[in-house]
Design a binder for these strands. Structure first.
Lengths: 250, 250
DNA sequence: ACTACACCCTGACGTTGCGTGAGGGTCAAG
DNA sequence: CTTGACCCTCACGCAACGTCAGGGTGTAGT
């Protein structure tokens, strides 16, 4: 039940140093210590370690894994279900790699050089990784936003806050009109540009997702509802109307 | 046919920086440059890159990959055949991982905590990696030997050489006796200790492998045969006899 | 009671495989 | 002749440990 570092290391197939490291960065902390200062791992710690290794297998960084696991709403069951999916997609990827090897062998036997695009079929793991992030945390957009805002001064943040509330109040004032009213769309567009300039590149598809969050995410929803009841629903519809129009124009 | 960095990068799903890096360490060098100094990749370079990515997928380090690919006898066809094997074993590993996820889910539903050894089934990639190395190059023993000998002075090497030839000549002088003659076994044992002290820990099973190399590897074989015809076969038998006895004693 | 030996601890520096600018040329299109 | 998309070479940065060094712990054998 209570295990020493070495026992855990062998069990999980990682090095003792790795466990030390995970302890140091607070990713997997042993439940306790003996008087001698030895780490003691409990069953709960083992479960946590297992989770960590699952996420690592999917290519997430340790810092990210920590955030995901420590997030209050983390649902271990759901995570495992997702993992099963993602892992089987990876297995498919290996299948494609194997196929690539076989094609290469064949082209060698026939003496025909392969075409470039076929040669590298199946390698790219990057696409899978962004998908994992979409589901679990640090999307590329989030990273970009953090990057762009890291040097903002207090004054910058003030400006951001002022403009944001101004836009929201303007929209709140228009919330009795239809969602695709030109005045509404104008404000929604203003918000779109605001985000793109200040935080991250935001293509229509992503802006739609953001609109959905207005009703799906409690934090957004509450902000909007406090400003005016029903505003979150209205925002969502307006954003979609705006994106429809934007895409129609192309 | 002739491609720029970016084109190759996109084709292979790696970054431009990665290609720069591979060029810098001499792993994948573009066949030529334009007058402007731009890298130009040929079909041959693409094939090399593909090989590199295959080996990387198997977990080899870049330095190791370089050595393997640059080894004179490198057989691309055989390498690809092996890759196919190893990749499908990895796919199996993913299968076991998926099974582990499913078992975990089930134990959650039943509320029974899992046993440690089952929890981490399927993770360990290390075993696969040593296997890859067995096949392709830098075994753990080789690494240890390099480590231990890196500070040898010229005098040390001299001593090594002297002792080694002394042992070999003693064995050559005994090669008309049966392979399990006590005097022969004594010399074989001396050689065993010599290796263990000077180069790497060498359990019987490995020493047997070394004995097999005496006939299987051209370089060893030639050294022995030059000393006395038939010596390589004799060495092999004697080493096995020695290991038999060693294991019987336990 | 002593000592050998396997195991544990905490620093702290090293390594691999690129990421990420900085600073500056190249070249086809308009 | 000027953009804009690419290209180049340094050079520093970073994650996830590996690998000592220096020293304590615990228990089995004598």
């Amino acid at each position: 039940m209570a295990q020493t570092v070495k026992a855990v290391a062998e069990l999980a197939g990682v090095s003792v140093r790795t466990l030390h490291h995970y302890d140091a960065i607070g990713l997997v902390r042993p439940g306790g210590r003996t008087e001698g200062g030895y780490r003691v791992y409990s069953q709960r710690d083992l479960e946590r370690l297992q989770q960590v290794l699952f996420f690592k297998e999917l290519g997430l960084g340790l810092e990210e894994i920590k955030e995901v696991l420590d997030r209050p709403g983390f649902d271990r069951r759901q995570a495992l279900l997702d993992h099963r999916d993602l892992l089987s997609r990876r297995r498919d990827r290996l299948g494609r790699l194997i196929a690539a090897v076989e094609r290469t062998l064949q082209s060698m036997e026939e003496g025909v050089p392969m075409e470039g695009n076929v040669m590298f079929d199946g390698f790219s793991a990057a696409e899978y990784e962004e998908e994992v992030r979409q589901r679990w945390g640090e999307t590329a957009a989030y990273k970009e936003s953090r990057e762009r805002t890291k040097d903002y001064t207090a004054g910058d943040w003030d400006a951001v806050f002022t403009e944001q509330t101004a836009i929201l109040q303007a929209i709140a004032a228009l919330a009795d009109r239809p969602a695709d009213d030109p005045a509404v769309l104008a404000e929604i567009g203003r918000m779109h540009r605001f985000i793109s300039e200040r935080f991250y590149a935001c293509p229509p598809q992503m802006y739609r997702g953001l609109g959905d969050l207005a009703v799906a995410d409690e934090r957004f929803k509450r902000t909007y509802e406090k400003l005016r009841p029903g505003l979150s629903q209205f925002m969502r519809q307006a954003v979609h109307a705006y994106c429809d129009k934007l895409e129609a124009e192309e």
